[in-house]
């Protein structure tokens, strides 16, 4: 038993090593990962950065940030990315927006993946009533339109971080649960699981120590592809005024606040759009690279002839 598990973990380590090497050779992955690292640093050190800039994100600079006629200023020495419709520093607001984006997307991703993995493991391993309930629940969730439901929830509970995160998690854990469930069903009949069962391992042990490490790679791929979806959901809800309540800056909210100002202040729409696009693209590329590195057979399938 012990020799088996050491040799298994040794091959796991060398496997991880190979995956890491493959990833570091992938230029797209390195670029996407670097961008995401910068995004995280900005999110973490947001208060510090804003201190450095010297313009609070919710502070309207009516004297210095707007022209005499009340028009927002384009990017300049004092306001590096220009000002918004009421003279607030766009850069400061984008930095706060980065913090919100990172916080919401990570919270939602961690919650959905945790719930999805737990329920998926049980549903796949035990089958029976849990499996049926999961299938039914996921069909119900897929039958509900996200934005309309979010509207309904916000109309009852008001807009807040909690309502938004709850709504997003409600809509995203189901598909992960279904994926995990299918992976577990496939893994259940695998030899290593049968071997563990013969050796007298408990169900919990088999689920957590045998099956979970083996499907972790797949789960990681779906989790990384879930993050850009969550970012878009958060931004869309904030754009509609159903997400984070103002004056807290969010990328979707900034676009919505300045939308009618397109004729005089293109920067107030373009920069948040660009930030949003870069973040979702980076996570999508990261997920794609991860899939290629963790599942080389999928990449090779692409090469016909």
């Amino acid at each position: 038993m012990s020799t088996q598990s050491t040799s298994q973990s040794a091959s796991l380590v060398s496997g991880r090593h190979r995956v890491l090497k493959r990833l570091l050779r992938d230029k797209v992955f390195v670029m996407a990962a670097s961008f995401i690292a910068v995004l995280f640093l900005v999110a973490i050190f947001a208060p510090l950065l804003i201190e450095l800039i010297g313009h609070g994100p919710n502070e309207p600079f009516r004297e210095t940030g707007l022209t005499a006629g009340g028009v927002p200023l384009p990017p300049n020495g004092e306001f590096l990315l220009g000002t918004d419709v009421i003279g607030r520093d766009l850069l400061s607001r984008l930095i706060v927006g980065a913090r919100v984006t990172v916080f919401v997307s990570m919270t939602c991703a961690i919650l959905s993946v945790t719930i999805g993995v737990i329920i998926g493991l049980i549903a796949g391993y035990r089958g029976g009533i849990v499996d049926l309930l999961l299938a039914g629940f996921i069909d119900m969730v897929l039958g509900l339109p996200l934005l309309v439901t979010a509207i309904a929830l916000v109309s009852v509970y008001g807009a807040s971080f909690t309502v938004m995160i709850g709504t997003i998690v409600f809509f995203t854990w189901g598909p992960i649960g279904r994926i995990v469930r299918n992976l577990v069903v496939a893994a259940k009949s695998a030899e290593y699981v049968q071997a563990a069962r013969v050796l007298g391992a408990s169900d919990t042990r088999i689920m957590l120590r045998e099956i979970l490490p083996n499907i972790a790679g797949q789960v990681l791929i779906y989790a990384s592809l879930l993050i850009p979806q969550v970012i878009v959901m958060e931004a869309s809800l904030s754009f509609l005024g159903l997400g984070v309540p103002p004056p807290t800056a969010t990328w979707g909210g900034i676009i919505s606040e300045n939308q009618l100002n397109y004729a005089v202040a293109w920067w107030s729409i373009l920069f948040p759009s660009f930030a949003l696009l870069a973040a979702t693209l980076a996570f999508n590329l990261l997920g794609d690279s991860l899939r290629d590195a963790l599942d080389p057979s999928a990449a090779n399938k692409g090469r016909v002839k």
Partner: peptide, 9 residues
């Protein structure tokens, strides 16, 4: 990667 409202705007 484009959110709909960004494309629209």
């Amino acid at each position: 990667s484009f959110p709909t409202f960004v494309v629209g705007t």
